[in-house]
Design a protein around this nucleic acid. Structure first.
Lengths: 234, 234
DNA sequence: ACCTGAACACCGTTCAAGT
DNA sequence: ACCTGAACACCGTTCAAGT
């Protein structure tokens, strides 16, 4: 099994690119995409890379750095998707520009549903994520907002700025959700009433009760409209 | 060491209340409060309870149930803090009522900084959390909003409804944050400019750059004001 | 009914070594 | 310079047993 025959699929030097930091991080993100974030362990990652677990430590200091790296991979995708992070000096249509950038970021986030959860556990912003945030600040600035208002705006947007709302994570088991709700319906009369109405309005949404895309835009627009109003009255 | 002398601190039947589900969950929340969420392991929890790890499994099916239970503990505290979840049928001051309930919930969340992160990983709402959400729905209903608008409102509020914004987690290391930002200042000119202005405005905030309470209310008010406007135009 | 002990299948990581 | 093997200190959990 440790034979050095040329047809060994694991050891053939032609089949495997050399191990690099970039390949480790890209493969980590791929693994999370295909097998879920819980499957992203040092040992399983090494296996997918055709290498021993300890080999990773030569390219990366520890698991935290791998998680940081997967977020970096995601924001690099966002950078491509939005056509770079450059912003004009002034932009009368700042609101539309920002809205579009955020909704584009969201399409990338939807491909990596583990990313929001991992981002929540990061202590600091990586470079590419910071450059994304910078472009958001720059766009608000191009609309003439004061830095003070911009600062508040960042807090008001929160993670919505990155294109996800809390619930993006995973719906997972809609019918269990529905069943659990019915179980406690008598204890939550208002909630139950709301759901029965909403479900009636949109009986066969593919996403359970809610059209997540619509809801995301609804919340985003409330905030952007509110910021615009504050900027006008300043 | 397994002597049955009466002065054994671990085994004395007088010193230790009987193990119950409620005591397991309350102690789990206490452990997370005092030692951090990472310290909440079955083994350490058992140790704090003066019991063997496997004993917990008699009262609770697995670790997920323990995490569910700690959230239940938190929302029970919120229920007390807000004086119960009952809401009037109609309430002209619905916006002020809701604002106050959310800000009170926030004071509880601030005592349990691990709770937002744990909530993010819960698949479903527990009963007490659901009853809290029900009171939010009820209050919006008491203001005459349609169930459809209420449904959108819930999405717009997101986790803000529970009294936390994404960043509540832990500031942890403000100076490292600051240092990291300076490191990449040239790559994030807009962000750096904003921070230098904001820092100047509030040079010695106890919470790093930001007054989190102010920012939380700012974002909350933008959303509540937007909802009010939509309700009026309906 | 309530608690335990030994064991299993996993983790991330250290350290000293191989090529 | 790059990768590995053995070992350590942890996890959550099963299963069969004790009282």
């Amino acid at each position: 099994m440790s034979s050095t025959t040329e047809r060994s699929t694991e050891r053939s030097t032609e089949r495997r690119a050399p191990l690099t930091r970039a390949r480790v991080l890209q493969t980590a993100a791929d693994l999370a995409d295909t097998a879920g974030i819980d499957a992203l362990t040092i040992r399983r990652l090494a296996e997918r890379l055709g290498v021993e677990p300890m080999s990773l430590y030569y390219h990366v200091p520890n698991k935290e750095a791998i998680l940081d790296g997967t977020i970096e991979v995601v924001f690099t995708e966002i950078e491509e998707a939005v056509g770079g992070f450059a912003v004009p000096e002034t932009d009368a249509a700042w609101k539309a520009s920002l809205r579009e950038r955020i909704l584009t970021a969201r399409t990338v986030m939807l491909r990596h549903p583990w990313a929001p959860g991992v981002m929540d556990t990061r202590a600091q912003l990586g470079l590419t994520a910071a450059r994304y945030v910078d472009s958001v600040v720059g766009t608000l600035r191009s609309g003439g907002l004061s830095f003070d208002l911009i600062h508040h705006a960042m807090h008001a947007l929160g993670s919505r700025m990155y294109g996800f709302s809390q619930e993006l994570g995973e719906p997972e088991d809609e019918s269990a959700d529905s069943a659990a709700m019915e179980q406690m319906a008598e204890h939550v009369p208002h909630l139950a009433a709301m759901l029965s109405v909403v479900r009636h309005v949109d009986p066969d949404s593919t996403l359970g009760w809610c059209d997540d895309q619509f809801e995301f835009e609804f919340g985003l627009d409330i905030i952007l409209d509110g910021l615009e109003r504050l900027a006008r009255n300043a």
